[in-house]
Design a protein around this nucleic acid. Structure first.
Lengths: 353, 353
DNA sequence: CACATTTCAGAATACGTTTTCTAGCGTGTT
DNA sequence: AACACGCTAGAAAACGTATTCTGAAATGTG
């Protein structure tokens, strides 16, 4: 089932078969017809590894994520796959599961397969790890952070936009004591979100109370813990803004267990707009960071590097906007009248008892 | 950065370099040391496509799913990836998005990359489509269905087990009117689940009311529609068993909107045990079909076919058990006293008004 | 010590393509 | 009519590795 087999049967040379299959226009239509006929009869599929070997391009793009099970990623992977199919590329998916060893293996696997580019969507990938990729001039695209070098592009997420909208939204609902549950501050994206929150609060003239800023870890458990911490504060917040949706879901979950109603007693805003957000009860108001758009930008960035014959290996920046999606987890701030507080306390006691 | 470059610098032949890297024991330790030294100095990574070309195995396993965004799959993909890393394989992930054209492309891509085996986890893959794979003797593993042929294995899911447990669980909670929301009956797995439900009910001596069997579509919307339909029934069910978790989540969502409390007014059981199930409010009681286990079986099946040098291409069957996981969405059946019914009706009216 | 046998490194070939190079043929120009 | 040129198909080389084959050295045996 070679190209040679085809050549023999069509009584042409392998060169002609190759040219026919690759639709090189200079081949005689008559010969082409003969070739196609045999190709279809035999069900011949070209061998990609042989192609890659001689052409120097594998038509594979690597995609490195932290965990596929992180609900943020499936949409991205799906979109990336769609684009890959469209452009006749393959997707080499790799997950680091936050393990330095796995990160190293990811990079190694990408190189061994000679991928034509890598989109790095895992945060905390050390510069030293991507050294090998850079060394081999593999086009890269980073989200957020990333070195400003030829051959690597960045997608800058405009956290500020959406978070500002969220804060304004809450303020419009008369919330003044707004808490923020951050992500792990070792992540630059988490730091950026926190900074965006603080700046937005300042812009709008609200005080950010020190005790209302909690460091979470972007997991549901973290959100649950965060709410607990917030409950022990003297003057409780009436709204909580979370660094990602999973955290918000954790807060929601714990609030439910304590009889705190969302949004009546507590308004809640997430970040990311993962699928699950709209399935929650109540549906989560959140800042959308379009995963489809992100995948598009990443793919295009790689494609740009590859298609432009190494002339424009220039560093490029892409912008990913964020915007608030209002659903049902936010409402007018509960009045802080005495009865209300007493009622809230009662509910709390009855549950913990 | 060839193997030849290494050979030149280490002053040995390429054959020796190859043998060294592949840890063939017959190579002189002294030479091996020289080779490794150069390999490390230059940061040489072997070229997988060249290897694949000459060795005849690509060390790639294909994984075909219906949609990556279907919450059932991310866990599977992650587990499969883990195993792939462990066994020095690559994962070629492909999604069909229920599109016959995409299915065909999936198969084609698998063949062009010359994968060493394919796990088919999408339902509704036509036999004609896998013809090309079978023709090329690519090892296959199917879930549920699948032809009984040499070179292809099956993973049989024991739907009956878990569904029986679920029905028994509900019966023990004094439920007698139990509804079932099926998946699309074009899917064999959906049919199997429905049949398992009916048999379990019969076993335990409960009547399956014709009007309490609704055909859903395995989506949240489908679940919402199903509940609506169930609400219009003369004598309403006190419990609903769903063919998958997304359906159950839809039911839960719609119930919330109608003021029907889960589990107080309505007990709810799902199927699959996707991650999200435990995050719901209340956490969903569901029949677990371990995605990790599924991935393990699939990978092992492929590995068996590949490792055993084409001698045992025998058809093999693997069993995947299912079991009930009790959480918070099921409770004692609401008594059907007159007041209760009236109260339920009132709540319903007040919401729809 | 001579010869047979084993061991191991290197030369050469193969894997399935793409692509460069070459040669033949037809066409157009003077 | 002779010559130059463009066009296209085939021959051959290349991509980077594994592996078979070959020969030389080392080892064992009588």
């Amino acid at each position: 089932m070679d190209i040679r087999e085809i050549a023999r049967r069509a009584k042409v040379s392998t060169a002609t078969v190759s040219r026919t299959i690759n639709r090189v226009p200079t081949v005689d239509p008559l010969l082409a017809k003969r070739v196609w006929r045999v190709v279809n009869e035999l069900g011949y599929y070209p061998n990609r590894q042989a192609r890659a070997l001689v052409s120097g391009r594998s038509r594979i793009f690597g995609l490195i994520v932290s965990e596929i099970t992180n609900p943020f990623f499936p949409e991205i992977v799906q979109s990336f796959e769609d684009l890959a199919v469209q452009h006749n590329y393959e997707l080499l998916l790799t997950s680091t599961v936050h393990d330095p060893k796995r990160m190293e293996m990811s990079v190694r696997r990408m190189i061994e397969r000679r991928v034509d580019g890598v989109a790095i969507l895992t945060f905390g990938m050390e510069d030293s790890l991507i050294g090998d990729l850079r060394f081999r001039k593999v086009p890269l695209v980073f989200v957020d952070v990333g070195p400003r070098m030829p051959g690597v592009s960045n997608i800058r997420v405009q956290y500020q936009e959406g978070i500002r909208e969220a804060v304004q939204h809450l303020a419009a609902l008369r919330h003044t004591r707004i808490a923020f549950v951050s992500g792990p501050l070792a992540l630059r994206s988490a730091v950026a979100r926190k900074a965006a929150f603080e700046q937005s609060m300042q812009e709008i003239g609200l005080k950010v109370a020190r005790e209302l800023i909690i460091e979470g870890d972007h997991t549901m458990k973290g959100g649950m813990r965060a709410l607990l911490e917030l409950l022990s504060v003297r003057e409780r917040p009436t709204a909580v803004l979370c660094s990602n949706d999973m955290t918000a879901i954790g807060v929601m979950r714990e609030a439910f267990d304590y009889g705190i109603r969302v949004p009546e007693d507590l308004s809640l805003v997430g970040f990311d707009d993962i699928r699950m957000a709209q399935f929650m009860i109540p549906p989560l108001t959140t800042v959308q960071m379009s995963q489809t758009e992100l995948a598009n930008l990443a793919f295009q960035a790689l494609l740009n590097h590859v298609e432009s014959d190494s002339l424009s290996l220039k560093h490029k920046e892409y912008i990913l906007h964020t915007t608030l999606v209002v659903r049902k987890s936010t409402a007018i701030a509960a009045s802080s009248s005495a009865e209300e507080k007493a009622a809230k306390a009662r509910r709390l006691v009855s549950r913990t008892a």
